[in-house]
Design a binder for these strands. Structure first.
Lengths: 221, 221
DNA sequence: GCCGACTATCGAACGACGTTCCATGATAGA
DNA sequence: TCTATCATGGAACGTCGTTCGATAGTCGGC
């Protein structure tokens, strides 16, 4: 059972979601496809368990985090940790929201993030929405990078910079009167950092949250 | 060509992404699978064109919107329009970020949203991040509802309320000391509205953006 | 009036996938 | 030792995306 999950995660890590095939997993484990079905009910179940498996590691990382004096700062660190975990395993991004299990480590993460909002002066509904918003920002920015890069950059025949350069060249050639915004930000897009982009989005949401909470925390000063 | 795209969108609208099969599409069009390949290079291309097709409608809806006095308010209306389009067609959510075409209606939407930030007192980088953040919030909250509901509720043998009730019952049974946050918000989750949840997240981000822009707009007073 | 070139259509065939099913070992309690 | 349960392995089925060659229809040029 543990070997099945570890093999599935290894396949996903090595070559992305398209590489996770029951036949490929059986070959890696030196067994037949039928054996895998004794442990899991199907591919969906396999994926759910594999996700829960790695989310367990993320959850322990979150639990190891020392609580600080500011709840929103702690919330921010947790969101960044979650984001980094998805950067390490891009396939997590595509399937993150899929694992809406009734319980498990997914719920544990939700709880851990939510506990920080308990330290803020908010209504239950505001807390509920705040955690959803933070998770939404993480997922929304992570799915972008969860996409498998085109085969040309995987082969190494095209670097990521050259690939992005194709965008900027096309954009620079657009009519400046029809596309004033694209021209405004094309230099920013060129060589942009995905993580910086995520942090900017996260900080906007957290700034709004801080405003909503009135900058007052209920935790020890 | 137009018929192919219309048929693909119709299939997606009727029964979700799993229903879009080249054989099913050929049958609906009264033709063979080979004919479809004369118009599109493959299923990915078909999906990209179908998405661009419906995004064209969203873009015209955005262009029809009367500019208001406040750029952020306009940005908010546009984000809501985009979200509503995804609610109407849940399959859009799963594939929205997929269509990162170099040009097309996807770029047009990006430009339209970005033009609102040109009316704000921001640096180019801040504008770039602001649009990414808004799109991230829309996508992050839309993918949640882009998931196909379990077959039981599709059959009608289980209502959405009963399905959500399974969550709340399990959560209420959890240890209140280990899961204080889940207990805090379980009542909010029960019968919650996805759109309200999205609006809360969007408003947090826009509040942060308004703070960043110093509440000063460059557009006519 | 014929002909090559292009446009467009169709469905059989291929390989890969998820899944099912059953024959076959292993293992442990009686 | 017998037998019931646990566990394995791989052939077989149906569906999917995709490829390919056969087959018409539609022109303009000689």
């Amino acid at each position: 059972m543990e070997a099945v999950l570890a093999g599935a995660v290894a396949l996903l890590d090595e070559s992305g979601e398209s590489a996770l095939t029951l036949r490929a997993l059986a070959a890696r484990l030196g067994t037949g496809v039928g054996s895998i079905y004794w442990y899991v009910s199907g591919k969906d179940d396999l994926l759910d368990r594999a996700i829960d498996h790695v989310l367990g590691g993320v959850l322990t990382a979150l639990n190891a985090q020392e609580p600080g004096t500011d709840a929103i700062d702690d919330l921010r660190v947790m969101a960044v940790t979650l984001f980094d975990a998805i950067v390490d395993r891009p396939w997590l991004g595509a399937y993150f929201m899929r694992n809406t299990d009734v319980q498990g480590n997914s719920l544990g993460l939700y709880e851990k993030l939510g506990q920080q909002t308990l330290r803020l002066d908010l209504t239950p509904r505001q807390r509920f929405h705040a955690v959803s918003a933070v998770v939404g920002v993480v997922v929304g920015n992570a799915v972008d990078m969860g996409q498998e890069p085109p085969p040309e950059v995987l082969d190494g025949s095209l670097t990521r910079e050259e690939f992005l350069g194709r965008y900027t060249r096309t954009w620079r050639a657009l009519d400046a009167r029809e596309y004033p915004f694209v021209h405004e930000i094309v230099e920013e897009f060129d060589g942009h950092d995905d993580k910086e982009q995520f942090l900017a989005a996260l900080d906007l949401t957290l700034a709004g949250l801080r405003l909503q909470a009135g900058a007052r925390t209920l935790s020890p000063p």
